[in-house]
Design a protein around this nucleic acid. Sequence first.
DNA 1: TTGTATGCGTTATCAA
DNA 2: TTGATAACGCATACAA
Lengths: 367, 367
Amino acid sequence: VTNESGPANVQRVTLGRIAELAGVSISTVSRALADDPQISARTREAVRRVADQLGYVPNAAARSLRSLSTRTLGLMLGDLSDPVHGLVAAGFETEARRHGYTVVIATGFGDLAMERDALRVFVEHRNDGVALISTVIDPSEIRAVLRPDRLVLVAPEHVRLAEGRDLPERGVVRVDEGAGFEMAVGHLVEQGCRSIGYVGVGLTASNVTRRAAVERAVRLAGLPPLRRFAAGPDAWRAPRDVAARIARDLPEGLICYEDKLALSIMDALRALGVEVPNDLSLVGFDGIPFAALSRPRLTTITQPVVEMGRLAAEMLIEAIRTGELRPSVLLPVELTIGESTRPRTAGSRTAETAASSQPRVRAGGEP
Amino acid sequence: VTNESGPANVQRVTLGRIAELAGVSISTVSRALADDPQISARTREAVRRVADQLGYVPNAAARSLRSLSTRTLGLMLGDLSDPVHGLVAAGFETEARRHGYTVVIATGFGDLAMERDALRVFVEHRNDGVALISTVIDPSEIRAVLRPDRLVLVAPEHVRLAEGRDLPERGVVRVDEGAGFEMAVGHLVEQGCRSIGYVGVGLTASNVTRRAAVERAVRLAGLPPLRRFAAGPDAWRAPRDVAARIARDLPEGLICYEDKLALSIMDALRALGVEVPNDLSLVGFDGIPFAALSRPRLTTITQPVVEMGRLAAEMLIEAIRTGELRPSVLLPVELTIGESTRPRTAGSRTAETAASSQPRVRAGGEP
DNA sequence: TTGTATGCGTTATCAA
DNA sequence: TTGATAACGCATACAA
């Protein structure tokens, strides 16, 4: 005795089957299990008993077909194995399930074709809401196929949206990258860096935004022109090449597109005999857990990744409930000072400091 | 003009709607879109045109209800933000989607109640197959509610399954933890460690298995009794306490339950003035990407995490296709030698070596 | 080659 | 308080 998911040869458990055994009609069973007050306590209990005994679990497909609501949320992200995406997904899934929603997941790998395919999956499954994390697909293309008022974009990466341009007024969750990277420059300048470099990745909105912010801050500080280094999307797996280019033209301070790139560059530089922070100061972005475990610990801009995922789910569920999608938000970031940056008083090569607590400075976000 | 997921006020796109506009019956539309050879090329094209124009996307719920198959796979894991689980999930999702399956995800957080709830979600959605990663729930409890021949357990953590006992004959994907941890001990012994410790986490099957393997290997090597340290499930976030206990009773070689614990303990030990590898050799388990970026780089036992996820999906899809679930498998692990272990020739404190390539030694797996 | 009719499992409306 | 019935969107057996 089991339902469709149980052993194959046995009869499926449906309302009808329960009705038979309980000697009532299907609608009575439906109502009894739905706690309909119109049903007498006696029959409700009887029905319940039979249902439990048969191990009844409602069929989501049938229910959605009838109710025009699936109680599922779609979640699209670039790569489940990336720590940042994993943390966003964790926040999203937790919040979703807390509200009784199931998550359908699809990865896009930053590839337009795969993202389109993932989108089709979401449409097929008629998710009540969809969140797209760091996707490169054009928002207007999404809106053509998905209800715009049931759609949340987290850190959208379509290039046209760089530097906050052309952003939808509702349903976007972003982090104040501009403020964050300006802070990074500010921190380096404070510590006496006279030359600053930036290692970027890819042609995405965030890279454009981040590089532009760094460039602007460097100019405003009156420093020599930013030294720009370009890396491929998986340079963090094979950082030797970028690291070599950086080593040949070493700035006093180097800001990286993201933590995992910073950590791998730090490692690759060490192989080239370049030590952080003695030979240069290094700053990352993201605040992934391992940035706090590296040696030296990474100075980085921390973004509230879990909260971004949680918020995305919350906004979707709220939109489903109230019919109104919340306005776009810009979350603040924090400067987490580690050991990978230090004052660059000419010539001094301070010994690595022992473990210190990591101070945090907050910046950006909504006014 | 759009389907259910599009703007709310417009008519949904169904086969019926296409049929109207194309001037044919619903079944003709259904067949045309399904490439039924019985349909004339002319009507097929006409139907196609209308469908495209309306942006038709089939309704998965309706299709599953009718076909008794959802083309979805359920994936349950402990924590999306954990790098190991993320990598397994990535392998799983990629393989699933490659075969046209959609992934429904649910996290259990190593908590029995949450795992039960996640299980119910899978039953409700009638996933064609389900994979459970590192779950603590009793396999027989799972089998009572999910078709056993559509179920894959990856690294099951129910304590009763420790050391490979009571394992189902089919549908289990494991890694040879025993061989791996014996290798770890072997490596330390080779390097002259005279005292060995183990830091375990939780009361799960893998912890029991790993600790037992280390204990056995230590005994066989004729070393003094293993020094056991116990840590909580999130000791890696707050390692100070364990680290202090370890520092008070420092072995020459320390083996950790997993990489992220090893990395955080290494960091915490440094804060206590204990340096790896000079003051002790340290070995982890998992082979997460950041183990290769730490300083010193971590010596670890690498398990094929992405492949485990991929294989789980492959086994499920094969079982769905052929009706037969593949026998359980035991995958081999590799010893990845980093910089966190070094020969313990009495008194010598070798300077850290510069970057070296990481040799790998394979062990375990099926005969 | 195409159309008609039925059922998948629910929920909800209308009667009784 | 309960039952009969229709409809959600699709696939298919059977008719034409």
